[in-house]
Design a protein around this nucleic acid. Structure first.
Length: 441
RNA sequence: GCGGUCAUAGCUCAGUUGGUUAGAGCACUAGAUUGUGAAUCUAGGGGUCGCGGGUUCGAGUCCCGUUGGCCGCCCCA
């Protein structure tokens, strides 16, 4: 049996594992629909160039890529964003705005697997296209919160850190930074939390030592953890700059909208988050567990230039993705992963011969009516069958024996109450209906 | 790509300074039990001890390599 193993970073999903995964998908799908998002999907295999165009040539080292038999350079999808940009871009002219789409799909990345990260994983992706205003951020962040809160997680379990790459650029510009310097500084900000002062080494190498005053300004800015602090900081710097003032107004809208939805406790201003991805153009956000011992649960932001860059029309967009691996770990940790046992509604016990034939007729009728019905394929002794009925987790057992048949009845046993009554043959479907509608389920 | 650590049954593990045919609990199957439930007793299936090589009269045990898991670094769309 040890001859073949699954590939590193790829998981087997035994029924109990798949039940957990399906639980995630169910909650995500249900909430996305509640928010008015439509589900889509795309190909698992895409042209390698699609990802190189979006992320640069180096990305290939992180991809499952190969040359197909037709000589095409292809890659298993490592993310959904380029695909959905293509889909939306192709029909942008005929799609009603705003375009609110979601998907649940499997992705592949050729990376070293570790805690919370596999080479194959699933993501819920949600995006809004065609709305450039901060109203789209409110909607997408609210969905992100609900896609975690929907499991029973609270603001004590996780939170969303909200930042803004535009704000950073405008701020650095007001400090006199060139565009190249700003980009380098943002990459330092991204690493600062983890690396401390070493994060600025890359900047020093490229642009010379960072002036102390400028560094102090950057550090003060990334420490900002509230809207009030941001407001005060910008006022202090005499941020009369129209750009900064306009961004601040957008911040007021986003945080005000989320507060109005009752989600204020889930969102934390945190300019220390910038996300390394160069394609983000405005607000960026990441969801983390409050204890901080897991990697990011979800990440997203605005990417107004990407659809165009990938060959589509000029279409503003904002979106996020949640992964199944870290989310699953968090749900287990917080004890909100339900016990997902798959029990039938009814277990049918029968004798051999005529009783069994009668039972099979009812088994099928009940199944066709939508009940989950199980029975032993090869009927063993009655004692065994009762144990099997009990083990199955079914609420009800139906008993077809020669004694019952002789009387024209079926025994209807409530396995929880351990009570039993007789119902007339042919009245089974109706009795089930009465039982389960009365709250027997 | 780099470092640490681990690997015995489906699961959790035991296995003596290297010594006969590798064990236990749980789980699974069957019987006791041809009509009433989580019990008990009995029996059974399931292992090339991750894989390969070396040392040795003899390796689950010692050595080397390799693959895989876990943890961390790089990266993280």
């Amino acid at each position: 049996m040890a001859t073949f193993q699954s590939l590193p970073g790829f998981r087997d999903f035994y029924p109990e594992d798949l039940a957990r995964r399906s639980h995630l998908f169910r909650v995500w799908r249900q909430n996305a629909r509640a928010f008015g998002f439509e589900e889509y999907d795309g190909p698992v295999l895409e042209p390698l160039e699609l990802y190189k165009t979006k992320s640069g040539d180096e990305i290939e080292t992180q991809l499952f890529s190969f040359t197909d038999k037709g000589g095409r350079e292809v890659a298993l999808r490592p993310e959904m964003t380029p695909t959905v940009c293509r889909l939306v871009g192709e029909r942008a002219g005929s799609l009603k705005r705003p375009i609110k789409w979601f998907s649940i799909a499997e992705f592949y990345r050729y990376e070293r697997a570790q805690k919370g990260r596999q080479r194959s994983f699933y993501q819920f992706n949600a995006d809004i296209f065609g709305e450039a205003g901060p109203e789209a951020e409110i909607e997408i962040i609210a969905l992100l919160v609900q896609c975690l809160a929907g499991f029973g997680l609270t603001a004590q379990d996780f939170y969303v850190r909200l930042s803004d790459r535009d704000l950073w650029f405008f701020y650095l510009e007001s400090l006199g930074c060139t565009d190249a310097e700003s980009r380098s500084l943002l990459s330092a900000v991204d690493r600062f939390e983890k690396m401390g002062d070493d994060a600025f080494k890359g900047y020093a190498e490229a642009h010379g030592e960072l002036a102390p005053a400028r560094k102090a300004a950057v550090l003060a800015f990334l420490e900002i953890k509230s809207l009030a602090a941001l407001r005060a900081h910008l006022a202090e710097g005499g941020a009369g700059s129209g750009k900064l003032a306009a961004r601040l107004a957008d911040w007021e809208k986003v945080l005000g909208g989320l507060a109005a939805m009752g989600l204020g406790d889930f969102v934390q201003v945190d300019l220390g988050v910038v996300r390394g991805l160069a394609y983000y153009t405005g607000f960026v956000f990441e969801a983390f567990d409050r204890k901080g011992d897991l990697r990011a649960l979800a990440g997203g932001g605005r990417y107004n230039d990407l659809v165009k860059k990938l060959g589509g029309p000029d279409l503003p967009a904002v979106g996020f993705a949640i992964g199944d691996v870290t989310t699953g770990i968090l749900l287990e940790q917080r004890g909100v992963m339900p016990a997902l046992i798959s029990a039938p509604d009814v277990y049918v016990v029968s004798g051999e011969g005529e009783p069994r034939r009668t039972a099979l007729g009812d088994v099928h009728r009940l199944r066709a009516a939508g009940y989950r019905v199980d029975y032993p394929l090869r009927a063993p002794a009655f004692g065994k069958q009762f144990k099997a009925a009990s083990d199955s987790g079914a609420r009800l057992a139906l008993i077809y024996g020669s004694d019952e048949l002789a009387k024209g009845v079926v025994k209807f046993r409530d396995l929880c109450e351990r009570s039993e009554r007789e119902i007339p043959l042919g009245g089974v479907a109706e009795a089930e209906k009465d039982f389960f509608c009365a709250g027997g389920r």
